[in-house]
Amino acid sequence: MSRSGEFLEVINLSKHFKGLRAVDDVTFSVGNGEFLGIIGPNGAGKTTLFNLITGFLKPTSGEIHFVGRDITGMKPHERVKLGIARTFQVTKPFKKLTVMENVIIAALIARKQGKIKEDEKNFAAEVLEKVGLLHRKDMAAENLPHGEVKKLEIARALATKPELLLLDEPFSGLTGEEVASLQEVIKSIHEDGITVILIEHVLKACMALSERIIVLNYGKIIADGTPEEVCMDKQVIEAYLGRRGLEFASG
């Protein structure tokens, strides 16, 4: 049972809320440097899965392994220390703090953990530069437009110096132009060697970025493959469009 070869491993993971099986016996693994997309209809259990991987929820059963370590019982901040960072679907900026301070807080912790050697202010500025927010550094986070709050979420996650980055619907509510610019940012983050798992409703962006896609429906994995394979999958089309849609799609 040597699991040391895998980067992230999710093994028979389940999360039940009273009667509802939000995540139902899910097993998959992610390789180091991979870009994995997770899609699925509303309520398919995508965000619950993220909360389980990042430690914000405790699973009903199952295990999560990260770089060969069982992290199932670890708290969120301990997982951040190991290199797992996340963004939130409903953005959670530190509203009263400046954009710079938002990022400095994460960088500060990374410095204390010895992940960065340089001054946290410089590092935070680099991260802001990377996502294209440096010109906003002195603005209070609550005054940022929505599209830039999404970028701030990513900047804050990057400032924890992660190896694995989980992005929960970073494109939701963005204009076409903003989607394109953020897509570039995420692409370059992945090119820096960070493993990315992306939950997305904006399928076009998700398909363009992901090397592999997992489709969730009613808490179960119904498809796992390249974007092309997944698009052709009958179960997936049915989950998104219903049975009629499937008939329509297959002519």
Binding site: H77, T87, F94, L97, I109, A157, A159
Partner: peptide, 24 residues
Amino acid sequence: SETGLILKAIKEDEDAAMACGIDT
């Protein structure tokens, strides 16, 4: 100090503070 900034982060949003790696 740094500690004060961390405390402020906890006040603003405890979940986000945890996601930053803070032992809240």
